[in-house]
Design a protein around this nucleic acid. Sequence first.
DNA 1: CTGAAAGCGCTTACAG
DNA 2: CTGAAAGCGCTTACAG
Lengths: 360, 360
Amino acid sequence: MASKKRTTIRDVARRAQVAPITVSRVVNNAEYVSAETRQRVEAAIQELNYIPNALAQSLRYQKTNMIALLVSDITNPFWTTVTRGVEDACSLQNVNVIVCNTDEKQEKLDNYINLLLQRQIDGLIVVPTEGYNGTMLENLFASHVPIVMLDRTLKVKGKGKIKEKIKGKGKRKGNHTVVRSDSVLGGYLLTKHLLELGHRRIMMISGSNTLSTGLERAEGYRNALDEFGIASDPELIRFGKFTQQSGYEITVDMIQHIHPRPTAILTANNFIAVGAQIALDEHQIAIPNDISLATFDEISAQMNPRPFLTTVVQNAYSMGYEAGQRLISLLKDLDAAAAEDIIMPVSLIIRTSTAPPRSS
Amino acid sequence: MASKKRTTIRDVARRAQVAPITVSRVVNNAEYVSAETRQRVEAAIQELNYIPNALAQSLRYQKTNMIALLVSDITNPFWTTVTRGVEDACSLQNVNVIVCNTDEKQEKLDNYINLLLQRQIDGLIVVPTEGYNGTMLENLFASHVPIVMLDRTLKVKGKGKIKEKIKGKGKRKGNHTVVRSDSVLGGYLLTKHLLELGHRRIMMISGSNTLSTGLERAEGYRNALDEFGIASDPELIRFGKFTQQSGYEITVDMIQHIHPRPTAILTANNFIAVGAQIALDEHQIAIPNDISLATFDEISAQMNPRPFLTTVVQNAYSMGYEAGQRLISLLKDLDAAAAEDIIMPVSLIIRTSTAPPRSS
DNA sequence: CTGAAAGCGCTTACAG
DNA sequence: CTGAAAGCGCTTACAG
């Protein structure tokens, strides 16, 4: 059987007739190495096809130059775009990004965190999973590893430790900061738009009520109703999941059970919107003639080549980029965690899925 | 600023009043450690929240227990399913999988390979990118790192080294094997189905002609035509990319320029099919009344809740699982690379997108 | 059952 | 400009 050993710095040193440390100097093109020696070493590196062992380097440097991005659903185009932003911000600083898909599963998140800590990851960007109540996030916050909480924060019922540690609004210590979109504003803008069109019975189909995004988008909805002096009907606010399935089910349920029917629906993300669309479609309820539909986030271009949904868009790329930058500054100085949360702006795009209600 | 140092085995040893090696024994629950000592050490581990440094372990073991999966497009549900198969096969053996998305870009593939080799990855599962002509794959084959080439092999024009090394059919040495679907058979089955329905002008829209999958699916198509004694019209075979865009463009081009129009289209993957569908739709060409459409791979459930396309399906999950298993056996014994390529079966699912041609 | 020594591959001081 | 020693955190092989 062929030898499995990889070429080491010692092999190169022997071949170039120098000490290992000299090879190291050439590789890291540092300090004074005579042109002649350098050439000899470089030749040896070429000939032996030497690749430095990053494990040994990291062990010595006490730094891996790797950060991880833990996202909840890599198939969502929103997250692939965020990922691109993170990668671009990090590659400028020669930091490598490991992308891990938690698939909205707490065990996966916990496994990854554990694995990454073992592998001495320099820092983490974490999108917590729905309804998270695992233990690793707490461990993580207890560690000195810099963290950026992305998009969502956890809202735990009761005053758990995690809540305190994770909320972090205005907090001045700890090893993390938060980068997220202005969900409250987004919910407000969408609702206000519908109210201004004349809608009075507006249904909010949100995601998980264990996630800040789910709660805050509903909060913005309520704020707008308040502003217009409309009492919010509890029947018209539903929490579920941020999935197509959930959007579909809640919409069907609404169609069957809520009378009079709302004249507009507001969904808390793109997947929910698609589910709602399918349900409305199946029941021959026309958008916007019979019901208006507005949503957070764009539908993927593939599923929806000609966008027609009125939407609040988050700038996914910028959000990723900011998160990457912030984590890198934490890497350099953990105290930077004290800095304010980064709250990304959102903007309303009005398209043809929203119109005045028929009755008005 | 808070200390960034993580807890080491030495800290634990000090606390538990034992030697570091004893802590190591407890952690790896190996050999004889007295119950009393073990308890003391475990307590110290708990109290200090000790996490072993996998970098140091890997350096010592000369093994990382990590393999990487380099896929061409993580947004394609085919590849997410393959990924799940790889992960399941590997997790049974306590091997961790790093998933990297090359996005069909050669530079990304080369970067990842380089990075992963530096990080001493134990083995790789690689889906080469379209039109690859980089250098890292060659380096990789020159190394002793076990590799599984997945789904596609590279076809380089002329007899390049890479070609020889990668084709590997029946070869008895080297550090890799190939796991792929039976593309020739798939192309044959789809075409035969259309021929049996009475179609005689069948257009094949394939992907890249630098990839085995693109070429072999067209080969199966030609085989079936041969069998039915039909001369293949070069105008009716088109290579492009495995993308929706490419499928769309080629279909539009066909609609505008090819007369008489083919009565059936065969697309080499799901994305091409979606592009073709959209183009046909835009030109009010009905499926299957005006033209039949058959394809490789399923369309994602999201885009297509009620499947109606006649399809050759590859078992993506099994393919991933087999690839994972094969790589793990290579890890244990590189000579296993000598084993035969694994060629996964495909099967034809007939739905409503194919029907006899109108003229017949 | 427990520990001191040596070494995985590299780099940071420190000498020359 | 070049190198010998020491150490990053861990475990193997050898002593006791």
